[in-house]
Amino acid sequence: MTTRTLQFNIYRYDPDQDKKPWMQDIAVEVDSTDRKLLDALVKLKAKDDAIAFRRSCREGVCGSDAMNINGKNGLACLTDLSVFPAGKPIVLRPLPGLPVIRDLIVDMTQFFKQYHSITPYLINNEPPPERERLQSPEDREELDGLYECILCGCCSTACPSFWWNPDKFVGPAGLLAAYRFIADTRDQATSARLDNLEDPYRLFRCHTIMNCVDACPRGLNPTLAIGKIKAMLVQRAI
């Protein structure tokens, strides 16, 4: 089996041991069965069990292993090892803009706080019918590209507006979720949802930088959803 050696340059910080963060140079042998960055990380951890990162499904649906890979946010389990140029170390850092708990693990409290702030659940105050609420296939299609979000945080932590105002700006992930409910024909709280977002910080910190679109490992487009929210606000106001 052919093996090759990968060089890594990894952000390390354990508040229990380290006074300040440092970058670790470490190499690991991978073979042809190791396709993804996560495979290499698992081998790295076998070498140095103190390297801390989150991971779970290893197929890009749980959103655990988001990190900053050579300067770009992405999921380790969906990043091909073959894309890394030989001879250059792979630089791994935690997602930017959030407090680091340890190594590649960030504190996502702020990110989830924003998600929770948009009332992320269906609101329909009519008594539920005995059967399903009807929805046409066309109406259901409106939710495509919205409900698939895995809450990995790649988008929001790539967004400068979120870096400056993580406490006030909902961020691309939260706004995508907000529009997911606005777009759902079964939801009855559209006005309240729009009220909730009409704020110079919560929604209008989005300056269409589109880093979120670039960062999303699921290929979703939060900027488009944000644009639709703004269009609805205009529609409501005039």
Partner: peptide, 19 residues
């Protein structure tokens, strides 16, 4: 399953709007 639909789960739909 109907409960889930009421919770807001985005099931695919048939032409008549059912799950």
């Amino acid at each position: 399953v109907i409960e889930l639909e009421h919770y807001g789960m985005p099931f695919d739909r048939t032409d008549s709007g059912r799950i």
